[in-house]
Design a protein around this nucleic acid. Structure first.
Lengths: 167, 167
DNA sequence: AATAACTTTCAATTATTTTTGAAAGTTTAA
DNA sequence: TTAAACTTTCAAAAATAATTGAAAGTTATT
């Protein structure tokens, strides 16, 4: 396979995968493109390579920057802006995990706590509802904490050992 | 909050969350409904509670069964079919993880391996592409393996200890 | 073997999400 | 301060995804 072909295939695949994970296709493609680009890329180039409009490029780049996984980069002597992706994968995973936790898990936990505090009338249905939503709360909140811990532990020897054993 | 209100809020929230994770809203809602229902639920009741059509209910139930997280249940003496959700959360997480691995991670890994085997011409760009996609392959494949291991380890003492420490 | 009770399928419709592109906004340089 | 170079915004259009509902398909009952 030739370089351009491979690059294209990678970008397309990553985009399709993004859709399945609730990320819009273009955003995932831009991210993929930046991930494999050595040099910062201009908006013009992104539009060109992905065949998308200026507005689309602009909005999705903004989205990626909100996630904290793409940055602006200035090339000396150049007027326009260039973009680079966070390329360190541990760092990337950490940022995505933290952000999803903040945006989705935390609010979901709030709702779980609320609904599991429903007035316990004596119906079996209500009892079961309470038990089940409580279990769900515990489960989701320890999964959430665990992700925090795993990202922290990456830096110390015990954590690294665990990662070794686990994988 | 009253039971019906709480139940409704839970179902709605879970549905909205589903959308953000690439699962269609109705599928997530049906699953939520079944999760908190003590007794098996008929298709009629699902349609009623979620205000959806028969076809919609049928297709999404099929989808949930394909994921292996909802089963058919027969009530003695009843003609029609009833449905129950997998309610054990460890089991649920394991099934989802395994299925996503099969459907999405494995095919993505295949593509990563392919594209990282691109003809190494001497351009810096191509070199970087190869390095980056290789790293990505390693990262994704160890994350994938780790998930496997975590679900296995749940059953033995060492695993349980680790889970304790991690959380 | 006919009918009733129920489920699945799928083409057409409806709803949601994404994309476009041109106008408005911003920043730099002369 | 003006103009050129560039970016953002957002209403309208296009693309995609979900939903409906009725016909076709199944399975159990008489």
């Amino acid at each position: 396979m030739q370089f351009e072909e491979a690059k294209n295939k990678f970008v397309q695949t990553w985009g399709a995968l993004g859709s399945q994970w609730g990320i819009n296709k273009t955003m995932a493609q831009i991210h993929a493109l930046l991930m494999v680009s050595k040099e910062p890329v201009s908006m013009e180039d992104i539009m060109q390579e992905l065949q998308i409009s200026r507005g689309n490029a602009s909005m999705n780049l903004r989205g990626l920057m909100d996630w904290g996984i793409v940055y602006k980069a200035n090339k000396p002597g150049e007027r326009r802006e260039f973009f680079v992706a966070e390329k360190d994968l541990d760092e990337l995973a950490t940022k995505i995990a933290k952000e999803r936790s903040k945006r989705e898990i935390k609010p979901a936990l709030k709702v779980l706590k609320e609904v599991s505090a429903v007035d316990a009338d004596n119906s079996e249905e209500a009892q079961h509802f309470i038990a089940q939503t409580k279990k769900l709360y515990d489960f989701v909140s320890s999964a959430d904490e665990m992700i925090d811990k795993v990202t922290e532990y990456k830096d110390n020897w015990l954590g690294k050992l665990m990662m070794k054993i686990l994988r």
